[in-house]
Simulated assay, not measured.
Amino acid sequence: MAQQATSAPARSAGLGRPIGARPRTVTAVALLLPGGHETSDRRPSPLARAAVRSLGRELARAGRADGLVAHTVHYRVGGWNGAEAQLARDATWAADEVVRRYGDVPVCLVGVDMGGRAALRAAGHTAVNSVLALAPWLPEDDVAAPPEPVRQLVGRQVLIVHGTNDERTDPELSFRLAERAKKANRDVCRFEVHSDGHRLSQHHDEVMALSANFLRGALYGYAFARPLEDALAAPPPIGLRMPLASGFGRTLRD
């Protein structure tokens, strides 16, 4: 993960405008967490936010009839920055802001790249009921540092999706985290998108369909598609290395 030189004016985190048409009554919220850098105090890249907006549009469209609204989180800075875990802090702030704006509604944290790590880390917020992490960036195992925490995932439904050919974020690290998380929380699953890279672009439609199905099930109690239901129920490693089948979205529409 790239590092950027630091230069740091103080800023506040924020929520972008609702993605798409806002429903008359908001009953749940998807918070979109963009990627970032390992170390940076610079202003976050607008390209990172733009990259998650297409995902936000798909999710908002899938849940709008039920009252779902999607917002992109605007970080204070673009870097995780070690123990400061600034992206996770901003995700927690965003969940607080959802409660302030919309009241007691469930939240799904949806993170891409380093935003995936932020989503997983901030899952302990009381408003969060689910986490969707796409190609999450996770730190290398280090005997000198504590492992990435998983206890905050207890009581949440968690889906991790990772391309097997991802050269930017290591899919094996997300498997290891999922393996530890599954011991604490049975409602954890992970899908592998075979031959796909970091952007999951080769199987974009399948990833979007899986994401929308998970979100509607987690936030509104709709039935999960059979592969997702099987992945959540299966013991490790089966449910943590579930292949995402070609045509997944078409199967749901048939």
Rank of each mutant, 00 (worst) to 15 (best):
M1Y: 08
M1I: 14
A2G: 00
A2H: 07
Q3E: 14
A5L: 12
T6W: 04
A8Y: 06
P9L: 12
A10N: 00
S12K: 13
S12F: 06
G14V: 00
G16H: 05
G16N: 01
I19H: 08
G20V: 09
R22P: 03
R24G: 07
T25L: 12
T25D: 15
T27D: 02
A28R: 10
A30R: 11
A30Q: 06
L31K: 10
L31T: 01
L31N: 11
G36K: 01
T39S: 12
S40A: 07
D41F: 11
D41P: 00
S45T: 03
P46H: 07
L47Y: 08
L47A: 14
R49G: 06
A50C: 01
A51V: 08
A51D: 15
S54D: 12
L55I: 14
G56D: 08
E58N: 12
L59G: 04
L59Q: 10
R61S: 15
R61E: 14
A62Q: 03
R64W: 03
R64I: 07
D66L: 15
H71F: 15
H71A: 07
H74K: 01
G79H: 09
G79C: 05
A83K: 00
E84H: 07
E84T: 11
A85V: 00
A88M: 09
D90T: 05
D90K: 00
A91C: 03
T92R: 15
A94E: 01
Y102C: 01
G103H: 03
D104Y: 02
V105D: 03
V107H: 13
C108P: 08
D113R: 11
M114E: 14
G115P: 09
A118D: 09
A118W: 10
A119P: 13
R121W: 12
A123L: 02
A123G: 09
G124R: 09
H125T: 02
H125W: 09
V128W: 04
N129F: 05
N129G: 02
V131Q: 10
D141C: 08
V143M: 05
V143T: 13
A144W: 13
A145H: 11
P147H: 01
P147F: 01
G155N: 10
V161L: 05
T164R: 03
T164C: 01
E167Q: 15
E167M: 02
E172N: 06
L173N: 12
S174C: 00
F175V: 09
R176D: 10
L177G: 10
A178W: 07
R180D: 00
K183N: 12
V188Y: 04
F191M: 09
V193I: 12
V193S: 02
H194D: 13
H198Q: 00
Q202L: 14
H203P: 03
H203D: 02
H203C: 09
V207E: 06
M208T: 07
A209K: 06
L210H: 10
S211F: 05
S211R: 09
S211C: 05
G217C: 13
Y220K: 11
D230G: 02
A231E: 10
A231G: 01
A234G: 04
A234I: 04
P237Y: 03
I238C: 09
G239R: 07
P243T: 03
A245T: 15
A245V: 13
G247V: 08
R250C: 02
T251A: 15
D254T: 12
